[in-house]
Each structure stands twice: as C-alpha cells, then as structure tokens.
Design a protein around this nucleic acid. Structure first.
Length: 480
RNA sequence: CGGGACGUAACUCAGCUUGGUAGAGUGCUUGGUUUGGGACCAAGAUGCCGCAGGUUCGAAUCCUGUCGUCCCGACCA
C-alpha cells in the first residue's frame, strides 16, 4: 500500500519554514516537557521522562558490562574544594550557582551547586585509594547538575539537566587512556545501536576541550538541519587532578604514585538529538529501542460487537514482547492516528470489523507511513521485523543526511564559501594554531572545530585559514 | 549579557491606539449520535489580563520596575 506523505498535523511549524520553531512545537506537542517558573528549568513530563528511563536502562547495562559501579555524590561543593584545580574552576566559575544561606544563617563558606563532580569524586578517592590493589576505581553516577546558562532551550541547553558522569582512576596512563577511548566507543555504539544516530567522533582541539582535561574526545551527531550537537564527551585527565587533590597510592614496587583519571558523560541533551535527527513535519519519530510506546493499537468502530475485545486480546498477546498501548478513548480514529504520529510511536496497529473478519490488522510504520495488512497469526514476528526495519531505516536516513551535508574545503576561500552557503560539516585542514580557529569562527558567524576525527585522509597540505603547513584534518560546523 | 518580539481561560489568540461590566475558537465536563486520517448536536464550567509599584473617580488598556518565554547575536565541558 502506498504511504500517504501529505502533512496532516497543522499545529507543528514545518521544518523548512523555521527549524527552531519546529523544534519547540514538537517538544510541546509530543508532551515531552513543560516550562517552569525558574528560567531554564523544565518539567520533564511522563512521556519525555520515559524516554530518559529507557536511555538510562540501556546505557547503565552497558556501563555495568564494562565493570562500572554506580554511586551517588552530594549536590553541593564547598568553594574551597572547587578551587583546587585551577583550569577546572576557571572553566566553570562563570556558570556556577551558589548557595550562601542555610535556613536563617549565612554560611561561613558558600556552596556551589555541582556543575560536574570531578572535585567531589577526587575528594572521595583521596580517602579510599591507598594501594594499587584499590585500582582501578570505575564509578558512575546518575544525577542532576546545574549550569547557569544564558540562553536555554528544552533538552539542548537548560540550567538544570540530568546526566550520568563516570569518573575512573587507574594505575597507569595507558590504562586511563584506554578507558577514555573505551567509553567514547561505548557512547558511539549506543548512539548507533540504540538511538539509530550516526556521528563523527574524534578529539577536541585545545580550545574546545573540557576545563582541566588533557584530552577530550567527543561524539558529534549532525542534526537534520546540518547543525552539530555535542552528544557526549570522554576526558583523559592524566594525574593533574590527583596531584591537585593529593591522591596517592603505593604501587607494586612500594613507591608512592599518583593515579591517572578519566571522566565521561552524556545527558538529557540526547533527547534533543533524537528529536532533531529523526523528527519530521508530523512530529517526533522515536527510535524503537527507546520509544516509551512501541506499538499503539487503535480499534476502529470500537462500539461494534467484538472489536474492543479483539483489540484487548491482541494487546494481551503483545504485552510481554513489546511496549504496547491500546487507545480505547472516545477520540476518533483519525485523531488517534495524528496523536501517536506526533508522539513518534514507531508502529501503529489498526483493527476493525473488516480486519477481524479476515483475521488480520493494518500495520503502519511511523518513519515512512507504509501501511500493510498483516495476518494475526504471525503478528509478533512481523512487529519484531518492522521495529528492526524502522531502526535501520532511521539510521540510514540520518547517515545519508550526515554524509550528504559534509563538505570538503581545500583552502580558505572554499571554506568561507561552504560556511556561507551550505549548512553542514566542513572537512578542512588546520595548522594547529588557536588563532586560526578563532578567526574562522569570527569570519563565518560561528563555525567551530567539532573535532579532529579518527579517520580521514588529509584533504590538502595547508591550513584552510592561514595557508601554513597543516597538522590535522578537522571537522568544522555550527553547533547547538 | 546586548538587539528584537511576546506574557489575557488548559491551548492559540482578539481586546490596548482613544482607560468605563472579560471575549472568540479549540480543549475540558455532561448527555446523545458517530468512528478506516484530528466527527457532529445540545447543555455547562473555567480568568489576581505574568508579578510589583505608580498615574487616575476608575487600569487588561497609560507609566516604571521586575520575572518568564521565543528569535538573533555574544557566552557556553
């Protein structure tokens, strides 16, 4: 059956008309968030939170498989503790919220609401790491953090957000470096296998790396409009924090050593990535593995004899295998079709009197709206197959977008031309000088280095900015 | 943090210029008819006009401040 591609929901602004407006429309119409009275703080509604829970469940299992343990740290950091690592505090100070009063009394030392917890983990590690036998320490926590952002948008940048932060300590530099890359791979795999999102991965430049890190690695997916989103980072710290916090252990030859450290995190921003990677003019499109509802069952003419009973029976059959919802509300079928499309439900089943007569139902895919009659006898297998196909279809479409909007610039002129006319990623050489990064950003109205990718051949011998000999291939782009 | 737009019912908005009883559509509630792409009829409920000051006999409307939202910049592991 041919899919009908005409736009059916008028409340959502078309992507091509105004991408930013489209995004906020989808976020609200799909009932993911509501605004609160505090600037930049959002209410994550049940449907949005259920996506986060599915993300958590999947990622948490991956972390545990790799040997990590969950802990919980306090949400307050005394000012003196935050200030122990110089680069770190300089990087975060401008966006930190402070608590200065407790009850009726002014605090003797103000407390920072954690923007990230490196310092707290270090304080704790100092107490529990004494011997090489205590290493490695592979800790992770799921929590909220606060960063006082000036411009906020639901999921993409909010004053408070939910995330996980892993903090690990290792005997050797090699082991810590391996951990950093292992977790980057963990994220990349998660993006591909669970969220159906392809991404460019690589190392951040000095200018863009995390405050206090020696190296920062990043997952950079491309949104539908060609803009990048920093989708997850993994940092190698060397022994810098360990020295600043005086964390030492006795090694195998009875010598005192500083351990080597990593940290890595992904946040609710990933939900923004899902929306802007897979969504369309009819609303959200969810990757099946994190969709709170995978199958929406819509009874047709449900007042007629046996329809509702059959729909219920069907749901009962599917319940253990999929996340299923039967909508037996009084709304018209057409209303329900639009509703679940807006909410991005991957598969819709329609069952009415005609279907029951023929022992079948109608199965509709959200990603391409393809409709097919499916025999009730092998419904489970067919849904499993379609959910897999939706995942694959979403990934391929996103990959085509990423590849189609990635351009190569061999010189300065070409760089400026692409930056001006073609939204997307630019692959171009760089001399390694921060001044060139700054200059390109200023000339292009915000095109920044995304990362130095792991793969990719040099596209020229000279820097696309200054023309001096090039050191690295860099992927550039605007970001959220 | 700069520039712009905007806060009126749950939502989208009209009313403000020219001060004088708070409005519409959608949604919601109840009853009925419907149901294969946002159905129809009837009845009903819903407002500190964002908040705080000021001007005035009288403020949704004029003035000041403040908080929040959106867009564009700047900033932003």
């Amino acid at each position: 059956m041919m899919a009908d591609q005409k736009k059916m929901v008028t409340e959502i602004t078309a992507m091509d008309t105004d991408f930013a407006k489209w995004y906020t429309d989808v976020v609200k119409k799909a009932e993911l968030v509501d605004y609160s009275s505090v600037k930049g703080c959002m209410v994550i509604r049940p449907y949005g939170y259920a996506i986060w829970e599915n993300i958590q469940k999947d990622l948490d299992a991956r972390f545990k498989e790799l040997g990590h343990e969950n802990v919980y740290m306090p949400m307050f950091i005394p000012e003196s503790l935050l200030q122990k690592e110089k680069d770190h505090v300089e990087g975060f100070a401008p966006e930190v919220a402070w608590v200065t009063q407790g009850g009726a009394n002014k605090l003797t030392e103000r407390l920072c609401v954690r923007p990230t917890s490196e310092t707290l983990f270090c304080e704790h590690y100092k107490n529990i790491i004494h011997s090489y036998r205590d290493l490695p320490k592979l800790y992770n926590q799921w929590c909220n953090v606060v960063r006082w952002e000036k411009t906020t948008r639901p999921f993409l940048r909010t004053s408070e957000f939910l995330w996980q932060e892993g903090h690990t300590m290792h005997e050797t530099e090699e082991e810590a470096r391996e951990e950093t890359l292992r977790m980057l791979k963990c994220y990349t795999d998660f993006y591909r296998e669970t969220l159906a999102i392809p991404a460019v991965t690589g190392r951040k430049t000095e200018k863009e790396k995390f405050a206090g890190a020696l190296e920062t690695y990043t997952v950079e997916p491309m949104m539908h409009n060609g803009v990048a989103l920093q989708g997850g980072t993994s940092h190698y710290f060397g022994d810098g924090f360990a020295r600043a916090f005086d964390i030492t252990y006795v090694d195998r030859s009875n010598k005192l050593q500083y351990p080597f450290q990593t940290s890595w995190g992904v946040s609710t921003r990933m939900i923004g990535a899902i929306i802007m990677t897979h969504g369309d003019d009819n609303g959200l499109v969810l990757p099946p593995k994190v969709a709170p509802i995978q199958v929406a069952v819509i009874p047709i003419a449900m007042h007629k004899e046996g329809v509702l009973e059959k729909a219920r029976e069907l749901c009962g059959r599917l319940k253990g295998l999929f996340r299923v919802k039967l909508d037996d509300s009084d709304n018209s079928p057409g209303w329900k079709f639009s509703e679940y499309e807006m909410k991005g439900v991957p598969v819709r089943l329609e069952i009415g009197p005609k279907d029951i007569e023929q022992n079948q139902c109608v199965l509709v895919r959200r990603d391409n709206r393809e409709k097919n009659f499916v025999s009730l006898d092998n419904l489970e297998q067919e849904i499993t197959r379609v959910l897999e196909a939706v995942h694959q279809g979403l990934y391929e479409r996103a990959l085509a977008n990423l590849e189609g909007k990635t351009y190569t610039a061999r010189d300065h002129e070409e760089f400026l031309d692409i930056a001006e006319n073609k939204p997307g990623f630019i692959r171009a050489m760089w001399c390694g000088d921060e001044a060139c990064e700054t200059r390109l950003k200023e000339e292009t109205g915000g095109v920044k280095s995304r990362c130095i990718p792991f793969d990719g051949e040099p596209v020229s011998d000279v820097c696309a900015c200054c023309g001096k000999p090039a050191k690295h291939l860099v992927v550039w782009g605007k970001q959220y």
